[in-house]
Design a protein around this nucleic acid. Structure first.
Length: 426
RNA sequence: GUGGCCGUAGCUCAGUUGGUUAGAGCGUCAGAUUGUGGCUCUGAAGGUCGGGGGUUCGAGACCCCUCGGUCACCCCA
């Protein structure tokens, strides 16, 4: 007998859980739609040519690749793995979006506000809140180079998180160019910048001493490393911007960040916004502003985004772009155990018990009527006078609720009960 | 990709320093009972002890490999 376990890092989703997830997705769609975003769909598979060298950083190493098919799959002594593959599963929604935009720009509004909800794949080692297939919900604005993009994206995504039921969360905002300028000014070599940024990004987890150590290990002069940390360490309180300017960041970049913060701050209940010069975010395609959402209930980020102005140039288009991605699985995990949020479309289930040999026609007619009045009707064939399925139905409803389903459960014995009777409600 | 911990029935777990036919609760199924169904009682089914190899007279317990889970790195949503 074969194992029925799911493939590594993949998982099944039970009915009650799907009900709950659908409700969350409805909320996301409703909120984003109210902010003017248009939903699109892109393929899960793209050519490797597009997926690779996309600035996806580490993610590019995690691509599930697709074997060529038919005649194109030629095995000889000197074929390398790369000769055998030509496609791959997407590791995010941004790369496919850029291809989509380049292909369809003429038929799209300008600037284009895109919403995409879809599965992405990364061949990582699975962990809690980390799967090899997971759902992301992205909004992006293509064709606007001003801070309006960032402001709209932060407000819309904050709105969505709030409506999903997140009580408190924080956005850390930064502009990579600012950090780069500071590093250069402080004496970090241009080829060391990336390594130093990665090390600095760990400051929220590791001690400053460890980070200094790591920076030195990456080839930076110990004196430079020390003064760098000191300069950035100062830039965390009330006067972040002033300190960053002193440390060598350009005024225009900093005032842009200030503008974003001032417009976003206070707009969403429970959302904190602050400039964090150490927020770096991977090292992918982001060119300037980057932001990351965290919840006190979760160790790592639950959403993130930034500006990727040069990405479209791959396709010969010169278009600025900026986006934010919600990590659906992680948000769902953060919300685990909480009650449904406002507007929860809880369904009213009705178990319609009937004798199949005598009451089938009658039952179908009754089912149609109850559907009209808003019930989700579940036909339960049950021979008259037989053991009542009551207990079984109650425990089934209980199980669905455990999985996350909401709603009421009613039952009605055709020919005996005049009205549906409440079995349980959630 | 690297390292630590874990893997017994559908679920939650017992299982003494290796020693007869591997247990419980919940759930499932069957029957009984109950004048209004979810209670109670009885019984049954269900386990290649994740898989493979090894040590041993004997392994669910010990060793190796492998698969899966989990945590920490790495990186990220």
């Amino acid at each position: 007998m074969q194992s029925s376990q799911s493939f590594r890092g993949m998982r099944d989703i039970l009915p009650g859980e799907v009900e709950r997830r659908s409700h969350f997705l409805d909320t996301i769609r409703t909120v984003y739609s109210s902010h003017g975003f248009h939903e699109i769909e892109t393929p899960i598979v793209d050519s490797l040519e597009i997926l690779e060298n996309s600035g996806g950083g580490e993610n590019e190493k995690l691509i599930f690749k697709l074997l060529k098919r038919g005649e194109k799959l030629q095995l000889t002594d000197d074929t390398s793995p790369d000769d055998l593959v030509d496609g791959g599963l997407r590791f995010d929604l941004t790369v496919p979006l850029c291809r989509f935009y380049a292909e369809n720009a003429v038929r799209l509004p300008k600037p284009f506000r895109s919403l995409q909800i879809g599965q992405v794949f990364r061949a990582e080692r699975p962990q809690k809140g980390r799967y090899r297939q997971f759902l992301q919900a992205d909004i992006d604005i293509i064709g606007d180079s001003t801070a309006l993009s960032e402001i709209e994206l932060l407000i819309a995504s904050g709105h969505a998180l709030h409506r999903l039921g997140l009580e408190s969360f924080e956005v850390r905002l930064n502009d990579r160019r600012a950090l780069e300028q500071i590093l250069l000014k402080q004496g970090v070599g241009i080829d060391q910048i990336i390594g130093v940024m990665v090390a600095l990004d760990k400051l929220d987890k590791s001690s400053p001493e460890q980070v200094v150590k790591e920076i030195i290990a990456r080839g930076v002069d110990p004196g430079v490393a020390e003064s760098l940390l000191e300069a950035l360490g100062r830039a965390s309180g009330q006067h972040v911007v002033d300190e960053l300017a002193n440390a060598g960041a350009e005024e225009a970049i900093l005032s842009n960040l200030e503008e974003i913060v001032s417009k976003v701050r206070g707009s969403i209940h429970g959302m904190g916004v602050r400039i964090d010069p150490l927020c770096v975010r991977g090292l992918g395609y982001y060119t300037s502003t980057v932001f990351e959402y965290s919840s006190p209930k979760w160790g790592s980020s639950i959403a993130g985004g930034g500006r990727y102005d040069s990405m479209m140039s791959r396709f010969g288009l010169d278009q600025p772009a900026c986006g934010v991605s919600l990590g659906f699985e992680r948000i769902h995990a953060v919300l685990a155990g909480t009650e449904g949020t406002a507007g929860s479309s809880s369904r009213r289930n009705l178990y319609l018990l009937f004798d199949q040999t005598e009451q089938l026609g009658e039952a179908l007619a009754a089912a149609r009527e109850y559907r009209k009045s808003g019930f989700s009707v579940i036909l339960v064939s049950h021979r008259h006078g037989g053991r009542s399925p009551m207990k079984r139905l109650a425990s089934e409803a209980e199980e669905l609720r455990r999985q996350g389903a909401q709603g009421e459960y009613w039952f009605l014995q055709l020919g005996t009960d005049a009205e549906p009777r409440l079995l349980m409600h959630g």
